[in-house]
Design a protein around this nucleic acid. Structure first.
Length: 128
DNA sequence: ACCTTGACGGTTC
DNA sequence: GGAACCGCCAAGG
């Protein structure tokens, strides 16, 4: 029985990750969202840190055949969360600039680039 | 079961 | 604006 509980928890973790990936796939090109917002939309309020963790575990092949645009997720202050100048930082910045998101230093103007999801549309499209 | 670790967030100074 | 601080909470060791 203890074994079963462990297994269920693992499955739940996997489900959480998948919900997050699915939500991130909704962010349109040229827009960004935050870890906290993604967590909320994925039905996991308060679990912003889990979003970061899951983004680091995206399968190489993407999720359900589609890539997961992890680089469109930044923190609530509009900044790239990787250390400035690091390899990961540069990769994310490059991806964003490639779709015309303006990055100054490590910052993006949320006012201009934050994704404003249509709530009803999201709820309809997500398959939990 | 305890402890540490985060691709976080909000508040305060 | 930014740094310090604290709260948060699942994962993993």
């Amino acid at each position: 029985m203890g074994l079963k509980v462990t297994k269920e928890r693992k499955q739940n973790t996997e489900n959480n990750y998948q919900r997050i990936w699915q939500t991130v796939q909704q962010i349109p090109q040229g827009k960004v969202s935050s870890y906290g917002k993604v967590a909320d939309l994925a039905g996991l309020p308060g679990k912003a840190r889990l979003v970061g963790k899951s983004l680091g575990k995206i399968p190489k092949s993407g999720w359900r055949g589609k890539p997961v645009p992890w680089f469109r997720v930044i923190n609530s202050q509009g900044k790239i969360s990787f250390p400035l100048g690091g390899e990961q930082f540069e990769r994310q910045k490059q991806h964003l600039q490639a779709e015309n998101v303006v990055v100054i230093g490590n910052k993006i103007k949320l006012k201009d680039f934050e994704w404003q999801p249509d709530l009803s549309e999201i709820l309809f499209s997500l398959e939990f």
